[in-house]
Write a protein that binds this DNA or RNA. Structure first.
Lengths: 119, 119
DNA sequence: TTACGACATGTTCGGGCGAACATATCGATA
DNA sequence: TATCGATATGTTCGCCCGAACATGTCGTAA
């Protein structure tokens, strides 16, 4: 069975949203301790990764990422408690959907054309 | 509390996907019996509505929309059994997510900036 | 005090997608 | 057989967003 990707996205106001891309970025930042490393890991330019971090930090009441400059390592970034919480809630929503919606997802998948055959 | 919109999107192969926009369109077609009326209802041009219908029909093993031309009414469109099923499964997934994920959604919402205040 | 690595920020360019506009076609009914 | 409303399809335009490129800034350790 081919993979069916689920994309979940939450829209709070007009200037605040959260989806898979930002979740992956937060996860990579938590893992590597830097925005640039996270950018490389997730295949996006540092420019874009930083822009997303900025959007995330201004899109929530409390910043999600805490960054620092200078030092022997050049600087770094870590998730704040809020960042950890947001990521956890989002991943949990994905898990809930995948589990509780398995029936419907499988049904839809069986109706859709899969990528291998002509149709 | 401001509304938090949930957007769920399923990606089957590279040429087959289903999300809120197409779901709304299908729903409007079912309700009005024509692509053009559905387009007006959902606020999209007929051109776009028709394009989406074409994408939907070719994105599933069986067409989701059955259309006909001519006649006194000019023509019309109806959902096929598959179309009805796809729409139902999608709406069900949305409902499942909203219900089972209520806790997480509310938590995220409380952390995000809402659209009314400065921050 | 120099060097290094990451943060921070501006600018330009190109591609993809929807909007808008323009036609052509069909067929039951009056 | 003329009409009418909806399907069917092509084409052009403008905008937004990410990609790519460029440059400046910071602070600790060597």
């Amino acid at each position: 069975m081919p993979e069916t990707r689920l994309r979940l996205r939450l829209h709070f106001g007009p200037a605040s949203m959260f989806g898979p891309g930002r979740a992956d970025l937060l996860e990579a930042i938590a893992e590597h301790g830097s925005i640039s490393a996270a950018g490389r890991k997730t295949g996006m330019s540092y420019r874009r990764a930083w822009s997303l971090v900025e959007a995330l930090n201004s899109g929530f009441k409390t910043p999600l990422v805490d960054s620092s400059r200078g030092g022997s390592a050049g600087g770094g970034a870590r998730l704040t408690e809020t960042g950890i919480a947001v990521l956890a809630h989002f991943r949990n929503l994905e898990a809930i959907l995948a589990k509780a919606g398995a029936q419907d997802i499988e049904a839809l998948q069986s109706l859709a054309v899969d990528m291998h055959d002509g149709k």
